[in-house]
Design a protein around this nucleic acid. Structure first.
Length: 1044
RNA sequence: GCUGAAGUGGUGGAAUUGGUAGACACGUUGGACUUAAAAUCCAAUGUCCAUUAGGACGUACGGGUUCAAGUCCCGUCUUCAGUACCA
């Protein structure tokens, strides 16, 4: 009986599905454990072998926890709204729902064949109306919430209305828009409904506001900060420009401090926590108000300008020698003197034209203009010149800085560039070369009442004095911006919002979901409205509470609906709660109180680190809101989080021989001539030519000769010239001369085969172009399957007539590690791996490749190692005549191997070190095979150890051993130390720290006896060669080291 | 620039507390079996010197601590990731 993995795997996958083996229960005596993967976006390309890495790891852990007696929730679903389906819809006209459905089918088939222990009964899809009904519902909760800084909680908007009605807004301490006019209770009660709504909008946790957004014209939508990488869109790499638009925003900044503090309570990697910390960007300091000194000519009405700045260094306030405003700052036009106006306007215009990207790329150039105005120093009352400069960002702090050139390098550079004085306020510090930016080990001087103080004391005192004068206070700033929530796209959640007189109104929760309308095209309208602007049936009837045709809009009972949709992160910010509820009970709630209470939050979350500032931050934000509002019980969604690394592809290259030539005429149309049939040289030849070229360039020849050789034309022109020129030829050794003659031969062959059309060309030499080929045609020894390549359905034509020059009878390809991608032809499909080697081999190999968190290259060749292991494992149980396992008593060695393995595997799983446990299994099977072990008492528990990793073979052998139930809930074997107790140790005997030989000695031997035995040993005497050792170190149970 | 992670054979990687560096695999070489191939099995495999015995060197580089360093300390270089005028 052989190991027939395809049949076995099919059999058990069917069994698990039929028996609902992995269905989680919401009521159990067992302790709960929730293992979750970041759910996939179902793309059209399907899965490649890199995708399941994290799923396999989490599946091993989930299965392990079941063996440990936990009630495990391990669900899976799809983040099925998103851009690619919509882009595809724009191109083909196919409804995104249709393509998404098809893609999900493929994903499901691929996931099923790998044997995951998912509870599919709880599947969610973010694009399913039954699901996004609750995404819309959460949006309404955000709209109906405000953030009370006094209670440090989000509260229902009604509590705010009550406060306004009783006390006005002056006593309210809320996270809200800036520049809200103060009003009294009487004012509030006198406001019209529209006025009230306008004010409340400035307090709500999701609000409609005209904001400067990142507009991506190519994608036709706005992007959040985390969706932009290096100034271009993360998806597609399109340019992004600043644009003012009315958008829904999320007041995530209200939660900045809690998002920061919460990081201390979760078990995430420091790397990930640091990324979030930096993104939140907390800085503690003070806000300081500077009064602008009125211009002599100005009238009384213009005299009261103030500039607020934020600083982290209030201790350096006496070092201020100028101020800088962002060019966009609203005061600039008000304070600029007539004399400076022209220069200032020119500067503003110039910097407005520079894109965000230019400004980012060009941080070295110092630019700025003096406004002609002065501010008054709050303490010294000295006049301080006010400049504008684009190194100050309008979007951070107040868009203005107090410049302290002696303590800040940017201020220093600016001051140097424009010859502004640089007063030194640091005792004993030299600032002639650069600013002194450190806060530590320095005392303040030349600073009036701050003299002699350190950073901490001086900051406190400065803030106190500013407060006394009413010109400042202690303040904390965060870099975290409110998140733009509107997208001008079709394939996303519609907002449950309609507009009455331009004011947004929420649709009552009972009427949800508001389903995505049909449109005839997925593009923006001619007027530039989002795609939903094309929907004919997209108006809200407040009487029938239903979506009705647009032509019925009367603005009394029937109103237009919101045209934007929600961003990708909306649906993924709460899906982990949805899994907690049984699919059967999901109608009335997003998840029931009991379910939420039972499962609490995710115990283990596995996914990519690219979600650090997106999904993982937004989820934490929504969870905090839901908790404050009493809908869930937890403050953090993910207790422990692991980022799996990426699996890279190993690309394969063939080297095409191309001609290097120039035209004998002056024709501009000239192209390098081509060959009648393409010729490819193998990697070894390519490498030889390349090495030779490098060798000559690095040789000691004159610059002239070198120039003649390389001539800036790529290496093979040079190689061609070697043939004729002895200067180079004489440098070479025999082997290199052989390489040259091989090259010459190739050159001659090629010359005979030049495509005749380009007779005007003068051939100078050859060049070699590396061409990607599909990795499936390359074997473990990097040999190319030429026939396979020539008959490939997609590219066979390109290679059909090609000549591959063999070496030793084979064609070897070059290899390089790159990201796995379709365009590099290095994608490996798990379907083929499962068919050829089985899912258990795939699972083991993905783990065997290396540590989970690490980036590592995939090389299909290596899978034979784990596949052979599974065959050996099978043979340990099943012989030619069937089951070999007997009730025979286990030997001491058998038990030692088993318990050593239990210990190691358990430690490995708990440390998420899955690669090392695969090695441990191999060692165990090798040892037990050598021991000819047939004992059921050893081989049965071994299956439980292996079952999380290779569940199919484990189930099959488990049932062959006579078990009727699935192995999935069998108890994990208990480690028994007593089987590992040894009586002797093979001591390494080292001399001066270098191991020379080993010596088997009893473990209970005393230190003195060990020393005596070792010193008396003939090899020791030989090593010492008559010398007397200075010192002998004996560590019983470990090592002996003889010094001298 | 700042922050974080990492550098070990031809390759992926192991060495969890300072104690035999290179486990386990891949690849390579040789052998067995076979008409042959595949599959399987056995042996060798860090580099260099040496017929052997054995020796020298070796965990990015340069120092240091220690009887003993891949592991600890100081400095340098390289790669990757995040971030980027954040006041």
């Amino acid at each position: 009986m052989t190991y027939n993995f395809n049949d076995i795997e099919k059999k058990w996958q069917d069994y698990w599905a039929k028996n609902e083996t992995f269905k989680a229960s919401n009521s159990s005596d067992k302790p709960k454990y929730y293992v979750l993967d970041m759910f996939p976006y179902p793309s059209g390309a399907g899965l490649h072998v890199g995708h399941p890495l994290g799923y396999i790891a989490s599946d091993i852990y989930a299965r392990y926890k079941r063996h440990q007696g936990f009630n495990v929730l391990h669900p899976q679903g799809y983040d099925s709204f998103g851009l690619p389906a919509e882009q595809y819809a724009i191109q083909t006209g196919q409804h995104p729902a249709v393509t998404t459905e098809a893609n999900i089918k493929t994903y499901r088939r691929q996931l099923d064949q790998i044997g995951f222990s998912f509870d599919w009964s709880r599947e969610v899809r973010t694009s399913n109306p039954e699901y996004y009904k609750w995404t819309q519902w959460i949006f309404i909760q955000l709209f109906e919430s405000w953030y009370n800084n006094d209670s440090n909680k989000a509260e229902h908007i009604d509590t705010l209305v009550e406060k306004f009605a009783a006390e006005g807004n002056v006593t309210v301490n809320a996270a809200c828009d800036e520049n809200i006019e103060p009003f009294t209770a009487e004012d509030w009660n006198a406001f019209t409904e529209v006025e009230k709504q306008e004010i409340l909008l400035k307090y709500r946790l999701t609000y409609l506001a005209e904001t400067e957004v990142n507009w991506c014209p190519e994608l036709g939508t706005v992007l959040a900060n985390d969706e932009i990488v290096n100034g271009v869109s993360e998806r597609g790499g399109h340019p992004v420009v600043r644009k003012k638009m009315t958008q829904w925003s999320m007041r995530i900044s209200a939660f900045a401090e809690r998002l920061l503090q919460g990081l201390d309570t979760v078990d995430w990697t420091d790397a990930l926590k640091d990324i979030q910390k930096n993104w939140i960007g907390k800085s503690v300091g003070a806000s300081v108000t500077f009064n602008v000194i009125p211009a002599v000519s100005s009238s009384a009405a213009e005299t009261s300008h103030k500039i607020d700045v934020f600083t982290t260094r209030p201790d350096t306030i006496f070092g201020v020698s100028f101020m800088t405003l962002a060019p966009e700052h609203e005061l600039v036009s008000l304070i600029t003197t007539p004399k400076q106006k022209e220069a200032v306007d020119a500067y503003i215009e110039k910097s407005a034209k520079r894109s965000e990207r230019d400004r980012m790329a060009d941080v070295k150039t110092i630019s700025g203009v003096f406004t002609g105005a002065y501010a008054e120093h709050p303490f010294s009352k000295a006049p301080i010149p006010i400049w504008i400069g684009d190194y100050v960002l309008a979007s951070y702090g107040t868009g203005a800085v107090m410049a302290v050139p002696c303590g800040d390098q940017r201020d220093y550079d600016f001051a140097k560039h424009f010859d502004i004085p640089i007063p030194n306020i640091f005792e004993g510090v030299d600032i002639s070369e650069e600013a002194f930016a450190s806060k530590d080990n320095v005392k303040i001087t030349n600073s009036d009442f701050l003299n002699g103080m350190n950073y901490k004391k001086a900051s406190k005192r400065a803030i106190y004095e500013l407060e006394q004068m009413g010109q400042g206070e202690g303040k904390t700033n965060y870099r975290l911006r409110d998140a733009v929530f509107s997208r001008q796209r079709y394939w996303g959640e519609p907002f449950p919002v309609y507009y009455v007189n331009g004011m947004p109104q929420m649709i009552e929760a009972e009427h949800l979901p508001i389903k995505l309308p049909e449109v005839e095209k997925y593009l923006p309208t001619e007027e530039g409205e989002p795609p939903l602007g094309r929907a004919d049936v997209w108006a809200w009837d407040t009487e029938s509470n239903s979506v009705v045709s647009n032509d019925k809009i009367n603005n009394t009972t029937i109103h237009p609906l919101e045209l934007n949709t929600m961003p990708g992160w909306a649906g993924s910010s709460w899906y982990f709660f949805r899994y907690m509820e049984d699919a059967a009970n999901r109608d009335g709630v997003f998840a029931s109180e009991e379910a939420l209470k039972y499962w609490e939050n995710v115990d283990l979350y596995i996914g990519g680190s690219e979600h650090a500032t997106g999904h993982l931050l937004y989820s934490r934000f929504w969870v905090k809101l839901l908790k404050d509002r009493g809908f869930v019980n937890v403050e953090e969604p993910f207790k422990k989080l692991i980022n799996q690394g990426m699996i890279l592809g190993t690309s394969a290259f063939v080297y095409r021989v191309d001609l290097l030539s120039h035209s004998s005429t002056t024709s501009k149309e000239f192209k390098d001539p081509s060959l009648n049939k393409p010729i490819y040289i193998s990697y070894d030849s390519f490498k030889k030519y390349e090495d030779l070229y490098k060798f000559i360039l690095n040789s000691k020849i004159s610059a002239e000769d070198k120039n003649a050789f390389a001539n800036g034309n790529g290496f093979t022109k040079g190689l061609a010239s070697i043939i004729e020129d002895t200067v180079f030829f004489d440098l070479l050794n025999e082997e290199q001369k052989e390489t040259v003659s091989a090259f010459q031969e190739l050159f001659e062959t090629v010359k005979k085969d030049i495509y005749s059309q380009n007779t005007g060309a003068i051939i100078e030499g050859l060049k070699f172009s590396p061409i990607h080929v599909k990795v499936q045609y390359v074997n473990a020894s990097d040999e190319l399957d030429i026939e396979g390549l020539k008959t490939d359905g997609e590219f066979g034509e390109d290679f059909k007539d090609a000549e591959f020059i063999l070496e030793d009878g084979v064609y070897k390809v070059g290899r390089d590690v790159e990201k796995m991608s379709k365009s590099k032809y290095n994608v490996v499909n798990p379907d083929k791996i499962c068919a050829d080697y089985g899912a258990d081999s795939l699972r083991l190999y993905e783990m065997f490749l290396g540590p989970l968190e690490q980036y590592k290259p995939w090389n299909t060749a290596g899978i034979t190692g784990v596949h052979n292991f599974l065959k050996k494992l099978w043979k340990l149980y099943i012989g030619e005549h069937g089951l070999k396992v007997k009730d025979a008593e286990a030997t001491k060695d058998n038990l030692k191997t088993l318990h050593k393995t239990i210990k190691k595997v358990q430690e490995d799983i708990e440390n998420f070190s899955f690669n090392t446990s695969v090695s441990t299994f191999m060692i165990a099977v090798n040892e037990l095979t050598a021991q000819k072990c047939t004992s059921k008492a050893v081989l049965e528990p071994l299956l439980v150890l292996i079952s999380p990793y290779a569940p199919h073979i484990a189930e099959e052998l488990w049932s062959q051993l006579g078990n009727n139930d699935s192995i999935s809930t069998a108890a994990f074997p208990i480690f028994d130390e007593s089987h590992l107790v040894e009586s002797s140790k093979n001591y390494p005997i080292s001399f001066n720290g270098k191991m020379r030989f080993t010596l088997e000695l009893p473990l209970d031997m005393s230190k003195d006896d060990i020393e005596k035995t070792v010193m008396a040993h003939e090899k020791t005497i030989a090593q010492l060669d008559g010398r007397t050792p200075k010192k002998i170190i004996v560590v019983p149970g470990k090592i002996v080291n003889i010094v001298g």
